[in-house]
Structure formats: structure tokens, C-alpha cells
Write a protein that binds this DNA or RNA. Structure first.
Lengths: 262, 262
DNA sequence: CAGTGGTCTAGACCACACT
DNA sequence: GTGTGGTCTAGACCACTGC
């Protein structure tokens, strides 16, 4: 077959048909990646589910298996999917035992979190309110929009260690109650997936040291003025849409925040 | 040619010739990666230098270009080498302007470190001493072995912000003086590369909040008891050999420690 | 222009999991 | 055995760099 090498596939043809001064060249596998990403966002495959095999996807998009493979490689590197040899590729989820606290970097000074057993969770408060300006900005809402605020304490081996305030946009999380949170056994992000279809994909944390105020000191059972780690986390779903703001105060007398740099 | 499919290359043949109960299967590209890594360690190519082209390496190791490519892909993902299309693959270095403070996660509350201009560095102390037990353990030395201790303050826009104590093993860093550090313009890790042939490859940080003691408070110009971020970093060369212990105290009133989770 | 890394394909075989 | 992801090869062409 004598065919134009730049149009021997549907996707490739569509790419080269782009108009504009800059051709905006983008590799085929990147385009395939975007297409798979859209299916993930649209919920075509739910967290924990098996996605079609590389061969199937290659047939669907009319490209070779190698091209699909490279697209999935990148998605796997970003922790959006998980590959398992012999079984297939699965949509990543927070509900797995292996990656229980994927966004929690606090470690006991000896051992790891698993060796401490599960954390005891105590919900202090859960209420619906109108977003203050700073919260609204962080969640890409308008000031005054409905948000849920949740406050809880996590204790390890009987010692209160983390005090967290969580803000969630009211729309996507309509119907979330303190009771539902208290009765749910797994990680909070797993509940978000199963009950609200919101999967947190990545997060940013801004960390500071500050002195415990009266309220925090009481809840964490430390003296007022005790230095605490302030960890402000913004968590994002697909497409960099912020879906959670979380302000944590960590006691660091028996634990530390661990970070790997490379 | 009728040849055994598992022995059509030197490296592959060597791999399949391994004895032992567990065949310890390792993909070809992983073995190639180890070989390239050894050349990097041995200093066959120095930081900043061009390594041989993929074709050359493929010829050297008697494998296909694709296999070399996959090995280099992983090295690039680990920031050990840097690829530049049309030019070649270079050994990574701390002396590049783009990645100036690769291990420093402190950011001004608005803008970034570059917008603040270069930090002012003030060396407080630099002395040779025998390693206390905890320092020795972190650096994989014996207690009492010679170490260099260095203390310095970094200021941004006139405000002292970071107080650092650095411990280095005496052997590899023989001859390092406060004067050499003061006159050197670039990042400390770049000096380590050019003068001592020590390239830091990755690091771990343990972070805590603590109250400023008298000495720290004076150097950072904050009240005694002010909450500070304590950042304890262990930096490693090739092969996970620890080469530096660094204890930093960060003021977080105008800056914060930024971490990306995924 | 030649040389480099980057993309894409096609086909073979290997390792693993289920049935 | 069948199907999955994982490895390896070989060859073609594209995009970028510098002579």
C-alpha cells in the first residue's frame, strides 16, 4: 500500500490536520494518553476496575500496541492506573491496602505507620457553611458558596497526633455526614471515590512551623505554644481541579514528616 | 542462523548463565542500566559531559538501540542523566542554572526563589572533628572518624532564613576549607562535584517543628522559642552511599516548605 | 548535510495468572 | 491453554542541533 506516512492512522491523520501557525506537534502516544484520560474522567472505567487490554485499546484507537503501551506507561508513572502482569491494567484507587495512606508523609520515629496499627479517628465537628474568601480561592469556588467543613483528630497508639480541618466543595460532596465518616472503615479518600465518584489524583502541601493555640493544644494534649507542623494540603482530581483543602497540625515529638528528594 | 534465542547476545548469555536456585531473572535493559551506572560511578564520564550515543552504547553492549534507550530512560527519570534532543545525553550536574537548588524545597510565600535573587551566604564556622555516634551512624562511619562540620546562614532579601549545620565525611572531602566555600559562587553541591568528585544523587529529609534555642534565635534574628522547621537531610551518592548530613532550621514566617505528592 | 534523541510500527518471545 | 502485561529486536521516519 502506497500511503502518506503521516495519515496511515485515524488519530495521526486528525493530528496532522490541525490548523494554525504552530502545527502544535504532539506525539501519537500523548494523544492516546489524553483519550484514555478522558475515559477515566468520564468514569467509563471506575476506580479498581480493569481497563481494556493494550491490544483492545490499540484496535480501538487504530494504533500499534507499542503506542498504547507508552501512553499507559505514563499514566502508570503518574499513579493513575496500576499494571499487573498477567492480569491487566486497573484504574488506581485509594482503597488498596498497600497504598493506604498515599498522601500522608508522617512516620513514627522508629518503624512505619503499619507497625503502629490503624489510627484511631475521632470526628470533632462536621458542618455546612459558606466559604470564606481564602477557602473559596483554594477550591476555585466563589466566596459564599457552600462548603463542608470537617474537623477530626487522629491518634496513634493512644496519643493524639494529628488535628485536621478539611474543607470540601458542597456540590460534589452533597450528603456527606459526620455519621457516614465515622462508620466508614477505610481511608477518607476511598470513601470519596465510592460514595461521591471523586478520585484524588495528586496534591500539594505547604509546610510551616507554628505554635499551638489554645484550641489546638487542648485537642492534641500539648502545652499552648508547643511547636507544631502545619501542613496545608490542596488535593486535586483529574484535570487539576482542586477538590479538597486540608489544614493539618502534626505533633512531631514522636513522629516526623518524611520526604524523598531526587 | 539457528541460535538459541536466549544467547544471541553477550549480555543475555551472561544473564542466562547465572547459577543458583532462583534464576534471578533480570531484563536486559536493567543489566545495561547497571553497566552504564557503573561507568558513571567510575567517572568514565564526568558531570556535565556527553555520554556516547545510544547507537554507540548499543554497539558496545551488543544489544539493540531500543534496549539502551529503555535503560537510559530510567536513568533520566532518576535525574542521573539529562537527554537533549539533537545533541545527546549528558551526565546530570548540580552546576546548571535551571536546577540550581534541586534539593531545597523552601519557597517564598509569593513568587519563587529565583524572583528573590541569589541568597546571601554567611559561613559561621567550619571545623574538623571526630564524629559523635549519631553523626557517624548517619554517614556510615565509625564513631570518632574524622568529619568536617560546617555552619552557615542563608539570607533572602536581607532576612536570615536558613541556619544550616552540615557534616561531611573527612576522607572524601579532605582539603575543604571555609575560604574555598566562601569564594565559590555556585551551589555547594556543584563544588562537591568539581573539587571532590562527589555527586549527590538523591536525599531524604525528616521534618519536625521545634522551638528556637538561644543560639539559633540569635543567628536567625527571631525570639527564643519561635517555632522553626527542622529539616534533617541525608544526601546520597551513587549506590546509596550517604555522603552528607545536613540539619537545617528554616524560618517559616515568610517562606514555606513546598512538597508535591502524587 | 550528518548525527542525535524521539516516535511509531510489526513481530517474536518471555513471565505471569487464571481456568 | 489462553490471554495479559513485559521484553527485545529491527527498521523506518520525524524533530532538533550544529557544521
Amino acid at each position: 500500500m502506497a500511503i502518506d506516512p503521516s495519515s496511515f492512522h485515524d488519530v495521526a491523520a486528525a493530528a496532522s490536520a490541525q490548523a494554525g501557525a504552530t502545527p502544535a506537534f504532539s506525539p501519537l502516544y500523548q494523544q492516546i494518553k489524553v483519550l484514555i484520560l478522558k475515559s477515566l474522567q468520564a468514569g467509563e472505567w471506575k476506580p479498581g476496575e480493569l481497563i481494556p487490554s493494550e491490544m483492545d485499546l490499540a484496535a480501538r484507537f487504530r494504533v500499534s500496541q507499542g503506542t498504547v503501551r507508552k501512553a499507559i506507561d505514563e499514566l502508570a508513572a503518574e499513579n493513575l492506573v496500576m499494571r499487573r502482569q498477567g492480569k491487566g491494567t486497573f484504574v488506581a484507587t485509594h482503597a488498596e491496602h498497600q497504598v493506604q495512606y498515599r498522601f500522608l508523609r508522617l512516620m513514627p520515629d522508629s518503624g512505619d505507620l503499619r507497625s503502629e496499627g490503624p489510627a484511631e479517628r475521632q470526628i470533632i465537628d462536621c458542618k455546612r457553611l459558606r466559604a470564606p474568601a481564602d477557602i473559596a480561592r483554594a477550591l476555585a469556588l466563589r466566596a459564599g458558596d457552600a462548603v463542608l467543613q470537617l474537623r477530626r483528630v487522629l491518634s496513634f497508639q493512644g496519643t493524639p497526633t494529628i488535628l485536621e480541618d478539611v474543607w470540601l466543595p458542597g456540590g460534589p460532596f452533597k450528603g456527606l455526614t459526620a455519621d457516614r465518616l465515622a462508620t466508614y472503615g477505610g481511608p477518607m479518600y476511598a470513601l470519596f471515590e465510592t460514595e461521591f465518584g471523586v478520585r484524588m489524583v495528586r496534591a500539594e502541601e505547604n509546610i510551616r512551623a507554628l505554635a499551638a493555640d489554645v484550641a489546638s493544644a487542648e485537642l492534641l494534649k500539648v502545652p499552648v505554644g508547643e511547636p507544631l507542623l502545619s501542613v496545608e494540603r490542596t488535593a486535586y482530581t483529574y484535570n487539576d481541579v482542586p477538590m479538597e483543602l486540608r489544614r493539618g497540625l502534626y505533633r512531631t515529638d514522636t513522629h516526623h514528616y518524611k520526604n524523598e528528594l531526587s
